[in-house]
Design a protein around this nucleic acid. Sequence first.
DNA 1: TCGTCACGTGACGATTCGTCATTATAAACT
DNA 2: AGTTTATAATGACGAATCGTCACGTGACGA
Lengths: 250, 250
Amino acid sequence: MSPRTITDKEFAQREIEIIEIARGLIEFECITTLTIDKLVAAAPYSKGTIYKHFISKEDLFLAICNTCMSEIKELFIRALAFNGSSRDRLEAIMVSYLIWAKLHPAQLFAVLTAHSPSVTACSSDNRLIEHNQCEHQLMELIGVEINLAINTGDLTLPPDMLFEQVTFAYWSAAWGAMALIMSKGESIKLEPMVLERESFTNSRLILDGFGWKPLSNEKDYNQTVRKIAHEIFQPELDTLLKMGTPFIFN
Amino acid sequence: MSPRTITDKEFAQREIEIIEIARGLIEFECITTLTIDKLVAAAPYSKGTIYKHFISKEDLFLAICNTCMSEIKELFIRALAFNGSSRDRLEAIMVSYLIWAKLHPAQLFAVLTAHSPSVTACSSDNRLIEHNQCEHQLMELIGVEINLAINTGDLTLPPDMLFEQVTFAYWSAAWGAMALIMSKGESIKLEPMVLERESFTNSRLILDGFGWKPLSNEKDYNQTVRKIAHEIFQPELDTLLKMGTPFIFN
DNA sequence: TCGTCACGTGACGATTCGTCATTATAAACT
DNA sequence: AGTTTATAATGACGAATCGTCACGTGACGA
């Protein structure tokens, strides 16, 4: 009754495989120069099959973005294992985010462009839902830490403020620095701005603005960042060094 | 010796005209659906002529973006006329930025997408230089106010920090909120985040983080925002109301 | 009036996207 | 084993769009 069927699992597996191939292509070219035809040429599947998975090129982009966000999530989880104050762990999240960005600059572009309206407009509903879940999960991880901080008294939630606003403030400040600095090609530099430094600056300002203890003038967070990086992300630091783009400490 | 010449001035004028036509098209469609062919159909010039002005579609996008930034600059200048503290005037800049964004949501998308690597890659050098100048001018306006604050003692520049970093921190936090909230289509909402509220929150956090006086717990900035909006941007507020997207005060 | 040369034009080749008619194939059945 | 059958895979194709370039046009000087 059902000849030549493909199981859901096989289908999902193949989707992952295609996404990985696409990510591989991006590494050498750029998200912009990636075309469906190139992907078809590089993958052991035909165009029709690929369009079974992604309803459009943008849908593929968003799928790549979602995969990246899942990867980032894993790093976040590792970061949250840092033994320190709640604020230390937020710093650790920033470290992990930066490390990922530096490890995969081409992929980061994919994540950035995935936030453009064209991608949102041309992606499948399921993919968009998945994307929202990914974003939600990342924010949730930050949210848990914020809750902890409130419970321990390190952070006092301003009375007229929603809980999610704290997450959003932190996330958006990090996003802004990332987007502005990384979008500039090598051709034009945005002053002498350094991704790592400005990101930590934004983090510090936002958290100090909340009065999240210990404040940055009570503690040397540069030291904390070094400790986090070496304790949790030493392998990644080594890779970055080998890539010629070492993590820059203050 | 030179038959049928076009002066530089005429050329520049025509460029402005074409950009305005393109902006008009964007209003009804979207930056993504804007094609050169549509522009050619809408403009009294042929494709060849248009390609005399813009070396690529992306170059046109960046030109639109630059025009928008010049418009924003004018609003910034108006904002800076606000009679108050230096921090009040930064708040005024945020108000003007938000008002522009709400007045021209479609154009804002153009500005956002103009920051994607594809646009940077395919634009002419001149256009990129112009873009950098626009960005620089906007930041410079903020920079002037920061200097004033330092001179009056409202702000103490952290010893290990460059002057430009203050500007960048403020600008990137504003950018992040804008990019994250506006990039979400109507389909998917990012929690109950409100552009105006989160923008002012970010602004307050960053400036409080710097210890920029008067701090937000010493003064009701919601009141200041209302004052700024009504004193300087009442016509725009009325327009927004008519558009059905009123400026949202806290 | 005519020649010239910069400017304007839009047809065209080249890409790339996404579809769909056709082919291949594995399971079920005889 | 051979046949049937429904589903999956394929890639040729039409449509859309980009950017170019060979040709047309017209203002000005001679």
